[in-house]
Every structure is written in C-alpha cells, then in structure tokens.
Design a protein around this nucleic acid. Structure first.
Length: 730
DNA sequence: GCGTTACATATTTTT
DNA sequence: TATGTAACGC
C-alpha cells in the first residue's frame, strides 16, 4: 500500500475511510482526483473489493479517462469489470440492457441538445403554437428542467397559461421522441431513475452489484443524479462523494450544490472530510480566492493553505477598451514567452462568454503567436458533421425522424415542403414512420402501396432516396464502418456539395474526413458504438493536447484545469457577474463561484483584466468594474496602468500600454522585499523633466521601478534609486 | 423547389 | 455581429 505514504493526513483519512456514506469536500488543487483513484485502489487492495463491484461516475469523459489512466498507473493494468464513466454513459448502458422495460428499443438513438430543439420546433409546428411567443430554446429549457427534476408531463405544475402550453408541448415532444426511437440527453437520467424506481427487482440487481459507488464533482449533481446515486447504493450503502460546493457552476443545468448539504441530512451517519491543503497555487492566489468566496452563504467554510509562500502579487489592468484588453493580454504573453521566462502553454486566458474570444483570437493572429481555443466552434456541431452523423443514424435507426428530416434533402434532391407534407401524411395514414414509408418506396418503387400517395416527381425523388437508404441499411450489415461511410459519401455526392472551391468548403470537407478517420477507429466496434460515442463524447474531450500555446477558454471550461499564468478578462459588471444574474441572489452566488473557479486555476500568476468600454454587438458602452474586484484585498493586488490621469492622448496611452506590458514581473520572482516609495497616483518631481504623476510602480530585483507620466514629456520609465525623484504633495 | 436577399433577431455557461 | 428566417423572383 505504498501509495498511502504519498498522501497528507487529510487525504489519507479520506482514502482509508471506513465503508458507509462519505463526503469529501475537496478545495481546489487539493488532490481530489488523487483521493478518488487512491480510494479505488484502497478498496481493491486493502479491502479486497473486486473491481466488478465498483461504480465510479464522473461528469465528463475527460475526468473518467483521467481516472482510468491513473488507475492503470497505480495497478499496472486495467481494472477488469469496474464501471467507470460519466453519468450519462452509465445510464445509457443500463437502459440498453434493460430496454425491455422501456418505451424504446435497445437500439435507441441519443438526441443531443440540437436534436432536442429541433423536436421542440416540430412540436410547436404541429400544435400550431407561435415560436415567437414560445421560443424553442426556452421551451426546451423548461422541458429539460422538468426532466432534471424528475417531473413528467402529468406532474408538471401549471401555475399559469404558459405552463399549460408547455405541458402540451412537453407531451408532444415526448411522443415525437419515442416515435423516433429516441432518448434525449435528460431522458438517460430520468428514465434510468424511473426504471429503478418502478422495478425494484432491477434496482436490486444493480444495487447488489455495486458494493461501492463513487462520485466525482458531487456538487454538480441534479435531482435525478442524486436520486440515482441513492438507488444504486441502496443495498450496500457505500456512497463516496467527492466535491466542492464552491465550484458548483452548473445550476442552469439543474445542478444543485445543496445536494452537498442534503447528503449530510439524508445520511446522518456519514463521514465528512475536508481537504484544505492546496498543492497548486501561491498563498496570494488562495487568499484572493478566499476573500471572494467567503461572501457566499450556505457553504462549508474552508481554509485553503499552500506551502508555496505568497508568490507574486496579482496584477490588475484596466484597458481603455476591449481591443486594448486583448492587446494587453497578447503583448504580455508575448513578452514573457520571447523573454524565455515562460512557455506558451503556461498561459490561459479565461472569459465569461465565448463571444469574448474573438478579439483575443484576432490579437493572437496579428501577433503571430499560436493559441489554442477550447470549446467555441464545436466540431460535432458543424453542419457537415451533423449531416454525416444523421445519415449514419438513419441507417442505424430509420425511425429517427430528426435525422431523416435533416438530410432527406441534403444535398438538394428535389424534396421540398410539398413532398415532405405528403410523406408525413402517407406515413400517418399507414400508421408508420416516414422512414419506413421511404424504405418501402425504395424497395418496391411503383409497386409500393405508398406510390400513389405522391405526385409523379415527388414519388420519383422519394424512391431514389429510399433506395439509397435501404441500400445502406443492407450495406451496414456487410460493410465495415468506414466502407459504409464512403458509400454514403459517394451515393450522395457529398463532396461536390460541400467543396465549392471556397476555403470554407474545403474546410468543411476536411472536417468530414476527420470524422471518417474517427469512423475508421471504430471499424471493429461497429456503427452502434460509434453513434453512442458521438452522442456522449463532447468536443472538450477531443481537444488536441500538448500544443505549446496559450489556451483560450471560458471560465466554465476551465474547471478542473490549472495553468501557471491565468488571465481573467472582462471583469466588468454585466459580464462577470453576467447581466442575467444581477437580480437573482442564487445566480449571483453562482457568478461568484465561477470567478472563484477561475482564480483558483492559477499556479503562480493571476492577471485580472477589464476594459473601460466595450462593444456589445455594435456600439460601445462604458462599463463598470466588476463588483467582485473590490472583494479582493488591495494588498494582494498590484495595479498596472492607471487610466485616471488627466490627459489621455492616444499615443501616450498606447505607449503606456506597451510599456507596462513589457515590465510585467515574471512569475518566478519572489515577493517584493523592498518597500515602494512611489505608489501609483502620487505626484513626483524630477530635476530635468519636472512634475509628473506615477502611473505604475513595482519592485524588480530589489529595485523600485516607476512609470511616470510627466507633464512636460509624457511617459518615462525610471529606476527610483537612480533617478533623483522627489515625492511632492498635490 | 431553389437560391438570393433583406431583415429581424437575440445574444451565458453545455455534460 | 452572425444567424436564422421570411419573402421574393427565378
């Protein structure tokens, strides 16, 4: 049990906890994943638990993979029989096994968020409800919300007329889903919980098997997930939850950090262990983070400690506008990288909204520095990728109407609204799905009973497409996945459709080939598994790793990561906290946690950046500093630049920007030992240049360096000890 | 049925 | 800004 020696006492206590319900509250950087994996190792090695009896659930595939890798390292082999994966993957697995109990067959497709919205739109259309009054995204959110709370249409609380309409939409939506032999993302959880609830014998089977249930990021569980954990651990009662209320940032998706509090109420005998030793950040970072998060109510106070000493002060910078903000970030990174002090991969730039990445990207492109963008342009969200996946899904499951409607006329083959309406009608009259009708048409041509339901031209084009589809279906038995893929590409002449000679078209075609490459990897596993993985694996999981470039990402995407140098930009009211959060205290608390998550990603150096004005789609607006900034104790922060000096000619300001950038202290330097004599804002006198105002001042190599804006000559950078500076009163 | 255009539209976070 | 859609003309 060597691994126990490398743990601190809190960690060891957590890893070796007695069976039963255990709650580990793990502050950022406290070795949470390590505790989780070592716990599994401990269960297997010390307590003799067979991996077969262990279930470990995470929220992301990445986290699951990370645990997998660490376990392999600990054991020198893969653990046979263990269930280790995301909530959704585990549920999908259960549902496919137990499909006999379900309204769908075991080959059900998993509908992603886009598909869900498409279904909502169809429900709106069918029920003749205005999509202006009932925006699809909002209806989708309401349905999703209900499902996350285990609310079925019949239990949906209707407080007003709008709710009643939503219930009707919810019901129709559900019908459409099932007609497509589909299960949406939320159903994976909801249906599993209901299955276990309504069939105690099924529940017992799983609960008996899983002697130990472990959960990562417990604070992000929603009602359904919480319920599920209870069910799965209902026989052996060994539930091991690791999380941190302070890092709960998915409230909008139904996550409820109060589950952490509920855990203690529901299991009064549970053990609660706090991990407060931080191995990531300097004490300065932790102190700032703590000052921010301590203002949140309803949490377990934690005292995060670091052995790494105070480190560098936090640098804060206020740019004139959002362009200058981006320029500051890029310039600073460029200086530190070209100075050889840092690698590109030491840096991360975090922001609240994806839209903010654009100016950054432009600035990076201008500078020639490579960068890595997380999230924004989703590979699986691209049109061409969705098209190809839809073809494959259709082959796998012709009942999938969402996919059918997506690609029935892609590339354009003369199937327009009129023909589609006729197809829907014919299907409804026959009590079949449009997919079946289509395939029958394809097989039998004018001999098909459906033939006469269509006009001459409509019938022909439908027969053509139906023939293709039924061909693929037969092919799917005989052909390998990549071969099927190519067959589809060929038959649809998809390349010609995409690659119109433009750069964009070429890019799209490359994406298709990228997907084909992936299909190639699945040739031994087949279509079903390929599709399941496409549905459950997000883009975040397919990030190219190991590029030596700064990472651009949202604060949400940053959770679980760490970087030496972290920039958090857009620290303005309306962005952080986001304007949609200001009138709801719970939302506001979540914004605070989000900022906290960002702060605690930094190992060495934090940069807090904002802009005095920024363009919100079109026009510029003046912005106020984020309220969270004032929660950070001043002594932890070193303010760079100072917009408040009187004149601000463009050139002087640009000088200042560039200049301060260059002088950003390196992360590796220790904290200042010399006292500053000329704090920013003070007036000084110089023998040759006369009076000026100190704009910036910092200690470097035990020397005080100051930036002064002189009334006579503008900006100068001086060594305080060498220049005969004199401080004067205003 | 298709493609173009103008126009309106709404802009958080996504396993 | 950028995206989607409604309307129009072919």
């Amino acid at each position: 049990m060597d691994f126990l020696n490398d743990l601190n006492s809190q960690q060891r206590q957590a890893v070796t906890a007695a069976p039963g319900q255990t709650l580990v509250l793990a502050g950022p950087g406290s070795g949470k994943t390590r505790v989780l994996t070592n716990r599994i190792a401990y269960l297997v090695q010390a307590m003799g638990v067979r991996p077969y009896h262990i279930l470990a659930v995470t929220f992301t595939n990445k986290a699951a993979r990370e645990m997998q890798t660490r376990l392999e390292r600990l054991f020198g082999a893969t653990l046979d029989g263990i269930w280790l994966g995301t909530f959704h993957a585990a549920c999908a697995r259960i549902l496919r096994r137990e499909a006999d109990y379900l309204p769908v067959s075991s080959s059900f497709v998993i509908m992603d968020a886009d598909d869900q919205e498409t279904l909502v739109k169809r429900a709106l259309k069918e029920l003749n409800i205005s999509d202006k009054l009932y925006r699809p995204s909002s209806v989708h959110a309401a349905i999703s919300n209900a499902k996350n709370n285990l609310t079925l249409p019949e239990n949906f609380p209707t407080r007003n007329y709008r709710d009643e309409v939503i219930v009707r939409l919810y019901e129709r939506y559900q019908q459409l889903l099932q007609a497509s032999n589909g299960v949406d993302f939320d159903d994976l959880l909801l249906m599993t919980v209901n299955l276990l609830e309504n069939h105690p014998e099924v529940k017992e089977r799983y609960a008996r098997r899983f002697e130990h249930v472990l959960v990562d990021e417990f604070q992000d569980t929603n009602v359904a997930q919480y319920q599920l954990l209870g069910q799965l651990s209902s026989y052996h009662h060994n539930l091991y939850a690791v999380g941190d209320e302070d890092q709960s940032i998915y409230r909008w998706r139904g996550a409820d950090y109060r589950n952490v509090l509920r855990f203690a109420e529901d299991f009064p005998g549970c053990q609660k262990i706090l991990l407060e030793q931080n191995y990531r950040s300097t004490q300065t970072v932790l102190d700032a983070a703590r000052a921010v998060i301590d203002r949140n109510p309803y949490r377990t106070p934690k005292n995060l400690r670091s052995d790494r000493g105070p480190g560098n002060p936090i640098l804060s910078y206020e740019a004139v506008d959002d362009h200058a903000e981006a320029a500051y970030v890029v310039d600073t990174i460029q200086q530190l990288v070209s100075g050889g002090k840092c690698k590109g991969s030491d840096f991360a730039v975090m922001y609240r909204t994806n839209a903010q990445s654009r100016l950054l990207e432009e600035a990076f492109l201008r500078s020639g520095l490579p960068y890595r963008l997380v999230g924004a342009q989703r590979f699986y969200g691209r049109r061409e990728i969705k098209d190809m996946i839809s073809f494959l899904r259709l082959v796998h499951n012709p009942a999938d109407e969402v996919s059918l409607m997506r690609v029935i006329n892609v590339p354009p083959r003369g199937i327009g609204d009129k023909t589609l309406v006729a197809l829907q009608l014919a299907a409804r009259q026959a009590g079949a799905g449009p997919g079946e009708v289509l395939i029958d048409l394809g097989r039998q041509g004018d001999q098909s009973p459906y033939w006469k339901s269509f006009s001459g031209r409509g019938a022909t084009v439908l027969v053509d497409f139906g023939a293709m589809l039924s061909d693929w279906r037969e092919g799917s038995q005989a052909l390998t996945l990549p071969a099927l893929f190519d067959r589809i590409l060929n038959d649809t002449v998809y390349q010609a459709y995409l690659d119109d000679g433009s750069e964009e078209g070429q890019g799209r075609w490359e994406n298709v080939q990228e997907l084909r490459k992936l299909a190639y990897e699945y040739q031994d596993r087949g279509l079903t598994e390929f599709l399941e993985n496409l549905a459950l694996v997000s883009d975040q999981d397919t990030l190219p790793e190991q590029t030596d470039a700064p990472t651009l990402l949202t604060l949400h995407a940053a959770k679980g990561l760490e970087f030496s140098h972290v920039f958090i930009i857009g620290l303005d009211e309306g962005l952080i906290p986001h304007s949609r959060s200001i009138d709801d205290p719970e939302e506001m608390a979540e914004e605070r946690r989000l900022f906290y998550v960002g702060l605690t990603r930094a190992r060495n150096q934090l940069y807090l950046v904002r802009a005095g004005q920024r363009s919100t789609y079109g026009s510029y607006e003046v912005s106020e500093p984020s309220r969270f900034l004032s929660d950070i104790p001043e002594e932890l922060v070193h303010t760079q630049g100072n917009r408040s000096h009187g004149r601000r000619s463009t050139s002087a300001w640009q000088d200042a920007t560039r200049w301060q950038t260059r002088s950003a202290p390196s992360a590796m330097k220790s904290a200042p030992v010399v006292e500053r004599r000329f704090p920013p804002g003070s007036r000084v006198n110089h023998p040759t240049w006369g009076e000026g105002m100190v704009v910036d001042s910092r200690i470097q190599d035990e020397e005080e360096t100051v930036d002064v804006f002189f009334d006579s000559v503008g900006f100068k950078r001086l060594l305080a000890s060498a220049a005969k500076l004199e401080r004067i009163r205003k």
